[in-house]
Amino acid sequence: MKPAPFDYVRPGSLDDALAALSGDPGAKVLAGGQSLVPLLSMRLAAPSTLVDINGLPGLDSVEVTDDGVRVGALARHADVLAHDEAARVQPLLRLALSHVAHATIRNRGTTVGSIVHADAAAEMPVVLRLLGGSVDVAGPGGARTVPADELYVGPLESSLAHDEIATSAFFPALAPGARVAFAEIARRHGDYALVGAAALVDGDTVRVGFVSVNDVPTVVDLTGVATEDLGDAALAQLDPTDDIHATAAYRAQLVRVLTARVVREATTDE
């Protein structure tokens, strides 16, 4: 349970960080380390260089405008969760973040790190896709913006190149009259979800995002589906599988229950 040796750099500028990444094809970014360090300790990953971005200036901000919330690469889950203005402009952030790990992990783990880590069992990639957000990325060729729908290409795989750094994620504001809801079932509060569901209801449009069901963060459109058919309509577009935590049949049942629950919550007044 000890990482293999690696070279370590802690650049003081984005340019130096990008240079360090392009200088070594085996280099990897270290942000909060809450996903990467366990992978290193278990030797599931053995990068030759770690580029620690925690010393980069100006990346720890959470900026809120009427258009939405821009979360810098070094903003910790805890900072975003505690941000009242962010919760006002886009309530789904706080609803979902309170389910991301335990408070201690949230103190160190970054929201942007979670988004580019691209774990289908993580809440925030699904939230970003459901809301139609994007990630700003810096690379050797300059900066680009990647829409959430183009971010997830496979299990634990984002479309970022190895020598790119995500500098921020943008979550659009909740449109006037639109509503959101979030629910998940986990063995213990703070554990990864067995299944999680996030709903966005805007006028007639009903969309639901699913955590821990498919092997990539997945959103399905349930516009026009009758209330009693919601769960089965969602399952028709999903592919729940067995793992050590739950059987596929149990996951399917959780999809039925949670889909109905989040859509009801986002459409009816309690």
Partner: peptide, 28 residues
């Protein structure tokens, strides 16, 4: 040693963090 049990929790600038999920070099 992978962030799950909490036995290694220490405070960094007053906030609890997992000491097993940080490198000493990053704690400067």
């Amino acid at each position: 040693e992978h962030g799950v049990c909490g036995a290694c929790t220490v405070l960094a600038d007053g906030r609890p963090v997992r000491a097993c999920l940080m490198f000493a070099v990053s704690a400067v």
